[in-house]
Every structure is written in structure tokens, then in C-alpha cells.
Design a protein around this nucleic acid. Structure first.
Lengths: 117, 117
DNA sequence: GCTTGACTTAGACTATAGTCTAAGCAGTAT
DNA sequence: ATACTGCTTAGACTATAGTCTAAGTCAAGC
């Protein structure tokens, strides 16, 4: 699969995919002509990167995880620890969002009363 | 209250508070010597800005809201609409976070099984 | 055999949101 | 009076994450 196909599959722009490769987040195979070649495993890995990004992990930290992943199964424990640490962060964020949502609802309610009366 | 006190109260740096003023998010009174003077109403407003920011609203959009707010009660309806729109966004984000959390837990579980066995 | 379209590179540019510096002024403490 | 602290300004600088351009290569269809 070419970078264009992968871009369509993942929703990342080709620019961004190249940028992720340059940063070290993904390692990419090449064909005889020097063009990037991707497979389904790359798609899965990109999707996981997107999840980490969506939950506020910085590329810097995703990169740390990525380096371990490319080192193979011996790094499973360390990767698990990173994810467990990140899980704590996500839980805290969810709490923050819930709290902010509560206040947002209250504010809207106040406005609604002001506007109705 | 000076900018230093407000900074301590809100957790924003003095730099950031000045930056928010420059951007138009907050309007600030001055004393005879030209120094910024804040009151409790400013603290409340900053705290609300922080909530909007924490829920992913861009300064650009917070600014739009701010301009209406400084125009007085006649803009209540419009502000309410902005908040209701933003509320939808926050709900969608919460769903995304919940979904990502689910996958994160699954991944951790897989690692845990790999590590334990 | 030429055009078209997708690919390649390095490096410049953008957006967002700060963060800091330099030079200077105001008010308080010794 | 002098030193100290906290404030003032404009504008330069930083971090993060892309986004795009220029110049060129390659393979397929006509």
C-alpha cells in the first residue's frame, strides 16, 4: 500500500505520515523505487498512535513507546507500564471533562432562565 | 488586586494574563500608575475562560464569547447558543475519551496476559 | 515515447498558545 | 537616599504539530 492509500485509510495526511516517520514513530519499508510501502500491521499501529494522540499523549512520549515496540517482545512489561501510567492520566482527564461539563450545564441553565424571563 | 495576586489565584502566569488581555479575552482596569487592577469578578471570568479552554475551546472562540459578554445582557441569547454548541462538542469529546479508554484497557489487558504467561 | 499522477527529498512556513527579555518606572523598607 | 520588588511595554523567542513548496523521479496508460 502506498502513502496515499494509507492516508485515506487512516485520515492522516501524507505530510503527517512522513512527519511521523521522520520523528521515529513509525518505521517504513521501501520498494525498489524508494517509495514507502505499508501493510495492514502499519495501519493498526497508526490507529493506535491516533488513540494515544487523541488522549493527549505527546508525540515525544508516543515515540518513547514506539522505540520499545520496535525492540520486540522483551519490552512488553515496560510498554505496559507506560500504558498504565497513561491510563491514570486519561482517568483524570475524564474527571476534568465531566466536572467542566457540569459547570457548563449550570451556566447554560442560568442563561436559559435569564433569556426566558 | 495586582497581576501577581491574580496569577497566584488562577494558576495562570502573569505573562499569560497579559497575553489574554492583549488578545481581548479580558478587559482590565488600571491604577494611577498604569498598573493592572483586578477584582473578584475578573477572577470568576478567568476561571470560566479556563473551563472553556480545558474543554478544547480555542482562544479565538473564547474571544468571540468574551466580546459578547462585555456588551452586556442583550447578548445573553447569543452566548447561550455558543455554550449549547460547545456543549455538543464536549459530549462528543467525552464519548471519544471513553472509547479510547476502552481500547487502552484492552491493550493493557493483552500486555498483562503476555507478561504474566 | 510522452503525459499524467503519485511519489521522493530538504527545508521553509504556519497556527496556536504561550514565555521571556530588556529597559524602565513606582512604591515600600532600611 | 538607596536598594528591592513588582509592575510596565514591545517585540523576540519557544514548543508542538503539522503543512506546504520546489525540484525531481518513476510507472502506467494512450
Amino acid at each position: 500500500m502506498t502513502i496515499g492509500k494509507l492516508s485515506k485509510k487512516t485520515g492522516l495526511s501524507a505530510y503527517t505520515i512522513r512527519y511521523y516517520e521522520k520523528k521515529g514513530l513509525i518505521k517504513v519499508a521501501r520498494d525498489a523505487a524508494g517509495r514507502r510501502v505499508f501493510d495492514e500491521a502499519d495501519v493498526e499501529w497508526i490507529r493506535f498512535i491516533q488513540r494515544l494522540k487523541d488522549t493527549g499523549m505527546l508525540l515525544r512520549d508516543i515515540n518513547r513507546y514506539s522505540k520499545l515496540r520496535y525492540q520486540g517482545d522483551s519490552t512488553v512489561e515496560e510498554r505496559m507500564k507506560i500504558l498504565e501510567e497513561h491510563r491514570k492520566y486519561v482517568l483524570a482527564e475524564q474527571e476534568k471533562w465531566a466536572n467542566n461539563m457540569k459547570h457548563l450545564n449550570e451556566k447554560i441553565q442560568i442563561y436559559r432562565e435569564m433569556f426566558m424571563s
